[in-house]
Simulated assay, not measured.
Amino acid sequence: MRRENAALDFTRYDRGVEDAVRRASGADPTIADHRRNPSSGVWPLVRSMIPT
C-alpha cells in the first residue's frame, strides 16, 4: 500500500463529527447498551477530543 493512499484526511469528516456524537449519545446516553452496539459508546471519548 502506498503511503499517500493510507493517509486519512480528518478534515473531510469535521462537519459530521458533532452530528454523529449527538446521534450516538441520543441512541445510548448511559452507554449501558455497549454490548449491542459498541460504537455508540465511543461518543464520550470523541466529545472529549472536540475543541470547545
Rank of each mutant, 00 (worst) to 15 (best):
G41H: 03
R2E: 11
V21T: 01
D9W: 12
P38W: 08
Y13F: 14
R15T: 07
A32Y: 03
A6D: 12
D28H: 01
M1L: 11
G26P: 03
V17W: 01
S40Q: 06
P44L: 05
S25R: 01
R3F: 07
M49A: 05
V17F: 04
D9P: 13
D28T: 10
P38D: 08
V42N: 04
R23D: 11
M49C: 05
R3G: 03
P38E: 10
D28N: 07
R3L: 07
G16R: 08
T30G: 05
T30C: 06
G41A: 09
W43Q: 04
A24C: 02
G16L: 08
G16F: 11
N37W: 12
R35Q: 10
S39L: 12
A6I: 13
R15V: 15
S39D: 07
D19V: 13
D19H: 08
D33M: 11
H34C: 15
G41V: 01
E18N: 11
V17P: 00
D28R: 02
A6L: 14
M1Y: 11
R35F: 09
S48N: 01
R36W: 04
L8C: 10
E18G: 09
S40W: 05
N37S: 12
I50H: 00
R3Q: 07
P51S: 03
D9A: 12
R36V: 14
A20I: 09
L45W: 10
G41W: 01
A6H: 09
M49N: 02
S48V: 03
N37G: 06
D33F: 07
D19P: 03
T52W: 06
I50K: 00
I31H: 05
D9L: 13
R47D: 12
R2T: 10
M1F: 12
V21Q: 00
V21A: 00
R3D: 04
